[in-house]
Amino acid sequence: MLDLIRTEIFKIAAKPRSYIGFAAIFAIVVIIQIALYADGQAYLDFLIQSLNQSFEIEGMDFNGNLVGFIILQTLIIQMPLLVALVSGDAISGEIQGGTIRSLLTKPVSRSRIVWAKFIAAELYTLLLILWLGILAWIASLLFFGPGDLVVLKSDSLVIVRNADTVWRFLSAFGVAFLSLSVVVALSFLLSAFAENSIAPIIITMSVILLFTIIGTFDIPVFNQIKPFLFTTHMIVWRNFFDRPLPVEQIAQSAGIMALHIVVFLSATLIYFNKKDITQ
């Protein structure tokens, strides 16, 4: 099994598209950091101006924790695309390239092949999250310095003390990994059905886009279906910056996402085991 996983990792590493995600994250993070270095304080002052009228706000300085948080909530919308670029290609790429037949002639079960590909895609996602964490949070802390974190919501503000940020960020990255794993599993399933690698990537992004748009509108009929959309739960990482910590909500969302992964992966296994590769 380890050999299979290693082979799949080599396959991912050999494809130039696998590096698009790392380069894109680097570019986006650096651009946002430069922009916030220039105008971050003015941006923050603009957002809290209604409170500034009532209070003398002390210590509200732009800092690395805030920059890290802003980047994280900006990039979380783009991250699924970067992940789907690789995971959407995992099975369909073999079909498109005609290598699926030789792959399946090996004396290993189809399920093992699916598992190896899934684990390799998960490792890639983990590396991408680590890369994001290092650039967005750790590098921001080095450049902007530490400080209390201001979590902006559309109707409220949460102040998280500097000493309280490390475990919150680490937990948020952990849950963000779980969220992206749902995307991996979905694109993996679509990849098993597709004959080329573009379709699963586009369909995955279309589904995420559609669900996100539904989540954005505050319309009663949409509010009814929001809890059933996995994109609603994908932003649960933000809840780690709430006070009091909504443990139940986090656990529920994590559970729903885990269930999505199980369902998508099971469907992939069932379908791939029956897939006719002779045509």
Partner: peptide
């Protein structure tokens, strides 16, 4: 206090009602 309100897009708080 004035009511605190930030456009959803600026707060990137898309799913909050």
């Amino acid at each position: 206090m004035n009511k605190f309100k930030v456009p959803k897009a600026l707060a990137a708080d898309i799913n909050n009602t």
